[in-house]
Design a binder for these strands. Structure first.
Length: 242
DNA sequence: GCGACAG
DNA sequence: ATCTTGTCGC
């Protein structure tokens, strides 16, 4: 899944592309026991320059044992605009995914899935492009209305927009603010919530995303940790001779 | 027009 | 998102 494809030049093109791609999103997928490998994805940005680091952490869905960690450094190809988030983070995340040895059965994204104005957030885009089931877990709502969920871990309330349930406001731990779970592609909301809870043993943020966040952040500060292992073509090498 | 607005 | 240590409280 290379991504040197044409990329939308602005908001107009990007919005049009979302409206077209949204039609291929499906809302049913694997059951919890069938999800063996779970990946968390995140991107960290530098304040000094225009570098960004994408990280993918693959873990055993049952034990949460880390199986693989990959990072990728790149430059932004699109600005951050609410509702067009995927055009900023998709390219680096796909590049990082290409470095993973064994592809996971589920991708957990730091952002929304269908809980989006056009029902096509980052998790949907990533799922449609990779054809891997995806779910979105966001710390803040983008759209929708909801009631405060109960105080215990597992308590949830529907996130609604235009009379449609677009996600769940889920309490992942007691005494913490809830997170916003929505399906990306090839996934049901019920399974999405269960997997999220199963992968959140202690803190507010699910372990896969939390580890991806830490990995990308630490790599930006100390590149040698993971970036040294990045395969790099020799100087002057032309991967695709002109 | 005003406020809101994933990361 | 990014700038940032310790500290207060469950």
């Amino acid at each position: 899944m290379n991504f040197r494809e044409p990329w939308p030049a602005g908001a107009e093109e990007a919005t049009a592309l979302q409206s077209r791609l949204r039609r291929s999103v499906t809302r049913t997928g694997p059951a919890v026991p069938e999800i063996r490998r779970l990946a968390g994805l995140d991107v960290t940005y530098s304040k000094d320059d225009d570098r960004l680091i994408a990280a993918v952490v693959v873990l055993d869905a049952a034990t949460l044992e880390v199986q693989d960690v990959v990072v990728h450094e790149a430059k932004p190809r699109f600005p951050y605009l609410p509702g067009l988030f995927s055009f900023r983070e998709l390219p680096p995340l796909l590049a990082a995914l290409e470095k993973v040895d064994h592809l996971p059965d589920l991708l957990m994204c730091d952002g929304h899935g269908i809980a989006h104005p056009r029902r096509f957030g980052l998790a949907c885009h990533l799922g449609v492009v990779t054809q891997i089931p995806t779910i979105g877990v966001a710390k803040q709502a983008l759209i929708g209305t909801y009631e405060e969920p109960g105080p215990s871990k597992g308590d949830r309330s529907p996130l609604t927009d235009q009379g449609e349930v677009i996600g769940s406001v889920l309490r992942t731990a007691a005494q913490v603010k809830p997170v916003f779970v929505s399906i990306g592609h090839m996934m049901s909301l019920e399974v999405a919530c269960e997997v999220t809870l199963n992968s959140t043993p202690r803190y507010r943020i699910p372990q896969p995303i939390r580890l991806a966040d830490q990995t990308s952040r630490r790599t930006l500060k100390s590149p040698q940790t993971y970036l040294v292992s990045d395969p790099r073509p020799p100087d002057g090498y032309q991967s695709r001779p002109a």
